[in-house]
Design a protein around this nucleic acid. Structure first.
Length: 799
DNA sequence: CTAGGGTTAG
């Protein structure tokens, strides 16, 4: 499809040079010497130089430049010292050699020594020094050189200005670069244009770079192999496939299609614009198997969701005996992580060890990530420990690895270690750890991370802010969540979904739906998870018609196929509002097999509506789907006991015991001054247990006076009434609220967290407590939030 | 005057 014209340099020898060996003048020999050096035949040049009977200053300068350009600086220095009559050019040649090798101290020393000795640096010397500053990021040094060039009137020289433009652009001071560029009325050459173009590209100004390319062509300046990679990178950043393809055609016309830099930039542009086919055509057309292009292609396959193709490309690279580098492995490891291919993962790991790339932080980071993603945290941790030079990404990979496997506490511990280790969080790890804090509902710690990210300017990051919204929403602080959301300059579907889910969980279903409408109005499309939030809002608010509407709109208007989560919400919505038959019908006509979440929703509704037949069916399905989960046993047993069938309840409990299923014990906790105070039912392990129990007794007495009646349905042991009532009084959430009344200052909300659903009697008691003690109580259980205020709950008793 | 990579959020 594409035609490439080779533009690679080919050797030449002019006729005058070929017959030089016999007899020649000094001028001819000097020229011959120069040509040999230009072709990189430095050893032959040295022989010629050594055998020359007579040498002049051109001979010395030519040889010195040759040494300097090929990086032979020791030889260059020796020759410099041996040069009988030095000129400014002698100095300049050596300095340019040092600059090219990045030897800062030597370069600057020579630059000053030269002036001390009375030689005036030329614009070329200045250019070399400026180039050094730009490579090394020595911005203030570069600025000094800028001043020097003004003083010496070299600031009108194209070479110097071009170097300055490059310097300012590399130091991310695009304004200065632009100023200099605009100030050049004429005389801009292709290097100047290219420097400016690459400056835009580097500074993330894709439009600027593309405009620059257009301007350059408008002035009739030809682009070259240095220009194309920059403009292609801009097309990639802007996802401008159309313009990228036009540039490709310019490249072919200009005869630059066989340059590896240009080719790899083309591959990169096509993959980033999503045109994998064209990218692959470029790769396949290449004469030279360039690892960089193949690497870019591999990344493209992984990013667009074709991990198998990435892996097969890697196999091909391996078969071709291509020289792999540390950039090759991460994307391959990534594709293995996507496929959860443990076997190939192990193979690749041993290959990495064999080829010695394990010591590259880049590679070991990708290994940590891969093992974490295929749920092998032990291996991930081992590699992390063996990583000699850990960077913030090593820590992030491990931390998110723990988080994604549900080990949020472990993630938090590693995060603390990271801080002690002296590594500063970046936006990635901040977003990740904030979401772990949200998951654990650790408001205090989350706020510390928030404060820290304000200090380090991470609060401009979209993902950090998204995490903050869900942190505050997950801790019941909707005002804070809203505040963060309002402060955001850019919002995406994740930001809106976090808010929608947050408001829904906190019992503000109507607001939640309003946010959805606002989101759609602002032109952002909902996705799979947005609809889970919406349907959750409907089921918790009891908005049956709304729920039905969104469920059908999801498919009709947005082309999203409902998944198990959506069906679970719908079945929850129908069954909770008592439409058990309709729920069962939906269950039967679902295109996918119902999963555990769906059965659990149904079972929970059976608990409320005391539908024993359906409950038995749901529980049976759950026993098979998740044999180790205690929840269905407990729910079924609770349903039996709530209708007084104690024998059946007990037999379910026995069944559970015989299968060796352990119930997750109910736990309620309050976080205070960075410490967590946890309470189980009838728990006396707290240091101030006595005081807390006294407070509970007082609490129960006071609320009974205003109408609280203990609901024995939630006392689930078949024991006598008086003991039942006492057991009920000392449920974990009641102990926690007593602790809160004693320790949380007046006016501040009492925040209680519970790992399982709140008990119905406790829910009722909380309403009375909030009124009698005039306190704001926020209780988050495993299902949603309950904001108790003045005797009412935000869930409207519908949960 | 020029290229490729790994980590994030609901």
């Amino acid at each position: 499809m594409f035609k490439f014209v080779s533009n690679r340099a080919c050797g030449y020898l002019s006729p005058e040079i070929r017959n030089i060996s016999t007899k020649s003048s000094l001028i001819d020999t000097n020229k011959y010497l120069g040509d040999l050096l230009k072709l990189g035949r430095i050893d032959e040049a040295r022989e010629v130089f050594d055998e020359m009977p007579k040498r002049d200053k051109f001979t010395y300068n030519t040889m010195l430049t040759g040494y300097a350009n090929s990086g032979k600086l020791v030889e260059a220095r020796r020759l410099f010292d041996d040069t009988p009559t030095k000129s400014a050019i002698t100095w300049s040649s050596l300095i340019s050699g040092y600059c090219k090798m990045g030897w800062e101290i030597e370069s600057f020393y020579l630059f000053y020594e030269m002036q001390y000795e009375g030689y005036k640096p030329s614009q070329f010397t200045l250019g070399s020094i400026l180039r050094l500053c730009s490579i090394k990021g020595l911005f203030s040094r570069g600025e000094q050189m800028h001043c020097y060039s003004v003083k010496t009137s070299f600031d009108m020289d194209v070479f110097v200005i071009t170097s300055l433009i490059d310097l300012y652009a590399k130091c991310l001071r695009l304004v200065e670069a632009e100023y200099l560029f605009r100030g050049m009325s004429k005389g801009k050459n292709h290097v100047t244009w290219t420097a400016m173009l690459n400056g835009y590209s580097l500074n993330g100004d894709a439009i600027g770079a593309i405009e620059c390319f257009r301007g350059m062509r408008a002035e009739g300046i030809e682009a070259n192999q240095y220009t194309f990679p920059g403009v292609l990178a801009a097309c990639a950043a802007d996802s401008d496939l159309g313009f990228g393809a036009q540039v490709h055609s310019c490249i072919v016309h200009g005869g630059f299609g066989a340059n590896v830099f240009v080719q790899s930039a083309l591959v990169d542009m096509y993959t980033k614009c999503g045109d994998l086919c064209s990218a692959r055509k470029v790769v396949d057309s290449m004469e030279f198997n360039d690892a960089i292009s193949w690497n870019a292609m591999t990344v493209g396959y992984v990013r667009q969701g074709f991990p198998e193709k990435a892996l097969s490309l890697f196999t091909k690279m391996h078969e071709k005996n291509m020289e792999l580098d540390e950039f090759t492995y991460p994307s391959v490891l990534n594709s293995i992580a996507l496929m959860k291919d443990m076997k190939n993962g192990k193979c690749l790991h041993s290959l990495i060890i064999k080829s010695g790339f394990e010591s590259y932080t880049l590679v070991s980071n990708a290994l940590i990530d891969m093992y974490a993603k295929i749920n092998n945290l032990d291996c991930a941790y081992k590699i992390f420990n063996f990583t000699a030079e850990k960077d913030v990404i090593s820590w992030t990979s491990l931390i998110t690895g723990y988080a994604h496997n549900g080990c949020h506490l472990e993630a938090l511990k590693v995060f603390c270690k990271m801080r002690l280790d002296g590594t500063d969080p970046d936006r990635f790890v901040a977003a990740s750890i904030l979401s772990s804090c949200a998951e654990l509902a650790l408001l205090n710690i989350g706020q510390q991370v928030h404060a820290n990210s304000l200090k380090t300017a991470l609060d401009t990051s979209l993902s950090v802010n998204n995490s903050l919204v869900s942190l505050y929403a997950n801790c019941g602080c909707l005002e804070h969540a809203k505040k963060v959301f309002n402060s955001m300059e850019i919002r995406n579907v994740i930001s809106w979904t976090a808010l929608i889910v947050g408001y829904a969980q906190n019992g503000k279903g109507i607001k939640s739906l309003q946010f959805y409408e606002k989101m759609v109005a602002s032109g952002i499309n909902p996705d799979y998870i947005t609809f889970i939030g919406l349907l959750f809002a409907c089921s918790h608010g009891g908005f049956i018609e709304r729920g039905r509407y969104y469920f059908s709109s999801m498919v009709k208007d947005h082309g999203i196929k409902p998944g198990p989560d959506h069906y679970a919400c719908m079945i929850d919505l129908l069954s909770r509002s008592g439409k058990m038959q309709e729920a069962e019908d939906l269950l039967n006509k679902m295109p996918v097999e119902p999963d555990a979440t769906i059965w659990k929703a149904l079972l929970a509704a059976c608990r409320v509506h005391k539908n024993i037949d359906l409950a038995k069916k749901a529980a049976k399905a759950l026993f098979e789907l998740e044999p180790q989960d205690a929840a269905p046993y407990v729910l079924l047993s609770n349903i039996y006991s709530s209708i007084g069938k104690w024998d059946e309840a007990a037999s379910v409990r026995r069944l559970m015991k015989s299968k060796g299923v352990g119930k997750e014990p109910g736990r309620s906790w309050i976080e205070m001054n960075g410490k967590v105070h946890a309470f189980m039912s009838e728990d006396r392990s707290h240091l101030n247990a006595e005081e807390i129990y006294l407070k509970v007794d007082e609490m129960i007495m006071k609320i009974k006076e205003v109408g609280y009646v203990p609901d024995m349905n939630f006392a689930l042991h078949d024991i006598n009434e008086e003991n039942k009532e006492r057991g009920l009084a000392y449920h974990g959430e009641k102990l926690a609220v007593a602790f809160g009344l004693l320790n949380v200052s007046i006016g501040a909300p009492i925040r209680i967290y519970k790992n399982i659903r709140v008990c119905g009697d406790c829910h009722n008691a909380m309403k009375f407590i909030s009124r009698v003690y005039d306190r704001y109580i926020i209780l988050r259980d495993s299902n949603c939030f309950h904001h108790f205020k003045e005797g009412m709950c935000s869930c409207g008793d519908y949960w």
